[in-house]
Amino acid sequence: MLIHNLSTENTILNVFMSELRDKTIQTDNMRFRRNIERIGEILAYELSKSLHYNSKSVETPLDTAEVDLPENDIVICSILRAGIPLHNGLLNYFDSAENAFISAYRQHKSSPESFEIVVEYLACPSLENKTLILADPMLATGQSMVATFEALKPFGTPKEIHLVSVIGAQQGVDYIENHFNTDAHLWIATIDESLNDKGYIVPGLGDAGDLCFGEKLQH
């Protein structure tokens, strides 16, 4: 797997990441969502450098201009619900992309430390010979990303696979690296050191879904 960790260079991305992590700023849900969206835009820009381009002629009012334009047929698949603002950021740049959505969540067993990933809802167009962008803002254990990809397999074989995350734990990165082909790409804003005993990223930022949309209803 090709890993593109954007935190290896200092850019304006640092500002958005610091605000996502800052517990005093996190209380502003709209700002939190917007920062994830902006990070999605930055990740989309970096990802766009790896796409395939063909020269096109564009008629201007004065003459003809030659422009190299991407030719990939893109499908963006996001994991609900925290993936929505990240999806929007990607879609802001890949505005002609098709869209897929999937719900994948942790179902805890006998203890908070023991869980499995459950997929319940999935809407997806054909992926055959297309460029799949699989987006999940939090790459903790990596199990959600792998479970989602397994659920997508009946929709066809993508020509290219790009995984997009905001924050990952090194353990999660290692996990998906063992489950995806060597030519898949991971685009990630930063990688943290570890997971706690409940499988949450440390230092991380907390529960991205709750910070975006409010706490989940308890059954």
Score class of each variant (00 low, 15 high):
Ile188Val: 11
Ser50Arg: 14
Gln26Trp: 03
Val67Gln: 05
Glu116Val: 01
Tyr45Ala: 13
Ile12Met: 15
Glu66Asn: 13
Gly89Trp: 02
Gly214Asn: 03
Asn14Trp: 12
Val202Gln: 14
Gly83Ser: 01
Ala104Leu: 00
Asp197Leu: 10
Ser50Cys: 04
Ser194Gln: 14
Phe155Trp: 12
Thr64Ala: 07
Thr148Met: 00
Ser194Tyr: 10
Thr24Asp: 13
Ala151Cys: 02
Ser18Glu: 07
Ile84Gly: 08
Met1Lys: 06
Val146Thr: 14
Gly206Ser: 08
Tyr121Leu: 08
Thr141Asn: 09
Phe213Val: 13
Leu132Thr: 06
Leu86Thr: 02
Asn5Trp: 07
Ala184Gln: 14
Gly168Ala: 02
Ala169Cys: 01
Glu113Met: 07
Ile133Gln: 03
Val146Pro: 02
Val202Lys: 15
Ala135Tyr: 08
Asn92Gln: 07
Asp210Thr: 07
Glu160Phe: 11
Ile167Cys: 10
Phe94Lys: 03
Thr24Glu: 12
Leu163Trp: 08
Val67Trp: 11
Arg31Phe: 06
Val58His: 09
Glu59His: 15
Asp73Phe: 06
Val166Asn: 05
Pro154Met: 03
Asn10Asp: 14
Phe32Arg: 06
Trp187Gln: 11
Gly156Gln: 04
Tyr121Lys: 10
Ala169Val: 04
Ile84Phe: 03
Phe213Gly: 12
Leu13His: 11
Ser103Pro: 08
Gly83Tyr: 01
Gly40Val: 05
Leu122Gln: 09
Asn72Arg: 02
Val202Phe: 06
Gly168Cys: 04
Ala169Asp: 01
Pro85Phe: 00
Glu150Cys: 00
Pro125Cys: 02
Ile79Met: 03
Gly83Ala: 01
Asn129His: 13
Leu86Pro: 11
Pro158Trp: 07
Asp174Met: 14
Gly40Phe: 00
Gly142Cys: 06
Glu116Ile: 02
Asn129Asp: 13
Ser78Cys: 10
Asp207Val: 11
Tyr200Trp: 14
Asp136Cys: 04
His52Lys: 12
Gly89Pro: 03
Glu37Ser: 13
Ala97His: 10
Phe94Glu: 11
Phe149Ile: 09
Tyr121His: 14
Ile102Arg: 10
Ile84Trp: 00
Leu51Tyr: 14
Ala97Asp: 02
Thr190Ile: 12
Leu51Asp: 04
Arg38Glu: 08
Asp192Lys: 01
Leu186Gly: 04
Gln218Tyr: 13
Thr27Pro: 01
